[in-house]
Nucleic acid binder design. Structure first.
Length: 249
DNA sequence: AACGGAACCTGAAAGC
DNA sequence: TGCTTTCAGGTTCCGT
């Protein structure tokens, strides 16, 4: 990646910068990027001179690279312009629902520090996961979506991994045995890779996902043919097969 | 500690 | 066709 110097940085919608920035986004002007990393749903960009930018996309956020003269897109809230050896470029943060946010800080923010292991880059240690789950009576699906347990698992991955591991999402976290947790760990790792592969292959038609049961309530279970249930668990839409996903309690 | 519910937003899809 | 309602892959806050 060409190393660049930030020549402009601007937030046209201050609400994306939450909480109130301890440091203004403009303070990165003149800085170069030292490192970019991702853990779970968070992106961290470290600049020289100490600034750090954290970005969470929420439900509808995205960073779009474009030319420096590209006009402001609809729902574009933040832009960062960079000068590289190959010319000037721009990245824009676009987010219709504005659930995403950008945090400027001089150090790692709490949300970043407290993230659990990232299944893609760290893998999942089943024993470690079992230890964490044993301490909680919450539903297993709620625990999986807790970013301090595992980083990056959201509603789709939790739903589909539980389907593949044949675990009822309403099961108490502390009721799962070691074998079930090991199976779940493998399913999660597989689901993360599968979802990324799917996204990278989306060159063709927006083909319906073939990964699991998410969003398929009422349809036939791809494994046993039973009618898939759709419930609200912790306020989140949850699909599962009442016949082949077993409930531990 | 943990749970339910509401809030934060807009757009797409479904319903009428 | 067009207006209305419902729902969405995330997080946080507030009351119980």
């Amino acid at each position: 990646m060409a190393r660049g110097i930030v020549i402009a940085a601007n937030a046209s919608d201050a609400r994306i910068m939450r909480p109130r920035p301890t440091r203004k986004i403009k303070s990165i002007v003149g800085s170069s990027i030292v490192r970019v990393s991702r853990r779970g749903k968070w992106l961290r960009i470290e600049f020289d001179r100490g600034a750090r930018l954290f970005s969470h996309l929420g439900m509808s956020g995205e960073w779009i690279a474009c030319g420096i003269d590209e006009k402001r897109a609809k729902h574009e809230h933040v832009r960062i312009d960079v000068k590289t050896t190959r010319g000037e470029k721009s990245v824009r943060y676009v987010d219709p629902r504005k659930f995403g946010r950008i945090v400027m800080s001089d150090e790692d923010i709490e949300e970043w520090r407290e993230l659990g292991p990232d299944p893609l880059t760290d893998g999942i240690d089943a024993n470690d996961l079992a230890r964490r789950l044993k301490a909680s009576r919450r539903s297993i699906k709620t625990s999986l979506m807790d970013q301090t347990i595992l980083a990056g698992i959201g509603n789709i991955l939790a739903t589909d991994a539980l389907f593949h591991a044949r675990i009822d999402p309403r099961s108490r976290s502390n009721a799962l045995d070691a074998r079930a947790i090991a199976k779940l760990a493998r399913a999660l790792e597989h689901e993360v890779k599968s979802m990324i592969a799917e996204n990278e292959a989306c060159e063709g038609e927006p083909e319906q996902s073939k990964r699991g049961v998410y969003g398929r309530g009422g349809e036939a279970c791809p494994r046993c043919g039973s009618r898939l249930s759709r419930i609200l668990l912790d306020g989140r839409g949850t699909t599962f097969c009442p016949r082949c996903q077993n409930r531990a309690r």
